[in-house]
Nucleic acid binder design. Structure first.
Lengths: 211, 211
DNA sequence: CTACTATTGTGACGTTTTTCACAAGCCGCC
DNA sequence: GGCGGCTTGTGAAAAACGTCACAATAGTAG
């Protein structure tokens, strides 16, 4: 039923979950793989194959029950609970993230903010006081932080990452444009806007020349 | 020499380019596929295969000349020139992006800012006046905007996208959590932080249960 | 000039991911 | 209860992607 799951499957599951939430708001009771495919920019067979990695959730001839599949997907993705997050780096990006509504509403709860800038330390954002970097480990331990959002300059990122992992953090969302060196048991997701812009300029350039 | 290029290859090229820039700063003259692989979290064979899609840039026995390969990669990725960008949505995310230094330094020049909030229209950011949504098309046409960064709420995103494309925009960096419906000839890159967080929680959850 | 070292470029191979096609199963109707 | 329309779940086929191994070749030393 499950072995190694492709990263692309996970991305699609995430998208199916969003579609199911939309469907629920629209009052849909059941949905077919065909319909999920249409909303997810993929194929019906792909939807069924993705889901089949984890079990069989549909009824032949009928499709999937929207509420049931939504619950199952939330379990699979591990978002059927609250994740405590520490935001490290209270600059522009950090501030934008902190106010990002999709964030809290999806179970990612920011319980600590850390920044190195002395003029920021002690400020409060939405009831949360910004702490200094020296408090990183104690905050993680005491508040049971499992995820760190790393929004600090490249130079500082590696050190923070190592310390956070040592303090017990289980995953990192990394905005610094470097490859973090952490144990393989700690997943890291890189957010790399420059790379995405370059993918755009490549696609546009290619279209003009190549074909 | 070139057919259809995998998206993963493009991502890696982007990373090689960054490594080459680092190497140049460090004063390196030449570099082997081995060294690029080490810095790029991949294998030497993969590096050579990626590059071979576009030509043969190295010297056997010697490796690649850093400056030369950097120039070639910039051509391939289409970043050997300035791209004019319009930022649509001057909220938290838009503001963070606008100040993101990696941005301008890599040839993405923001030439227009648009927002629907009347209290924002007329403000200036770094010498640029924020315009209302009605001016979208004229700004794109008159300033030769080729890329749009879409940092508006989900509800508004689709309409803006269509209008931008009609006005001649060639690519979109989309922060709205929806799948934009635009012609296939216009590449869209989605920035989806929730998806990346869900990939983390999946990886962490899986590690605990599965194995 | 030859031998030796280093490292690329690439065809052959293996693995992973996607697509295809269809039997199995559910539902409603007569 | 049997028939027909739908839609899933899944092996098998195809395609995409990554790895391997090695011939080709640049440079160097003797």
């Amino acid at each position: 039923m499950t072995r190694r799951i492709p990263a692309s499957t996970i991305r699609r599951l995430s998208h199916y979950l969003r579609s199911l939430e939309d469907l629920e708001r629209e009052g849909g009771q059941t949905v077919s793989s065909e319909e999920l495919a249409r909303r997810g920019q993929t194929t019906a067979a792909q939807v069924r194959k993705d889901l089949s990695h984890f079990g069989s959730f549909g009824k032949r001839g009928l499709g999937y029950r929207v509420d049931e599949l939504r619950v199952r997907l939330r379990q699979i993705l591990g978002v059927d609970r609250v994740w405590k997050v520490a935001l490290v780096g209270a600059g522009r990006i950090g501030s934008a993230l902190f106010e990002y509504p999709a964030f809290e509403s999806r179970g990612y709860q920011c319980v600590a903010i850390v920044d190195a800038d002395p003029s920021k330390i002690g400020q409060t954002w939405g009831g949360l006081t910004i702490r200094g970097p020296s408090e990183l480990e104690s905050l993680i331990t005491e508040l049971d932080v499992e995820l760190v959002i790393l929004a600090v300059p490249a130079k500082a990122a590696q050190e923070i990452a190592v310390r956070a992992v040592r303090a017990g953090v289980k995953g990192i969302l990394n905005f610094a444009p470097i490859r973090l060196n952490v144990p393989a048991s700690v997943p890291v997701e890189d957010v790399n806007l420059v790379m995405q812009l370059e993918a755009l300029s490549f696609a546009i350039t290619q279209r003009g020349t190549g074909a």
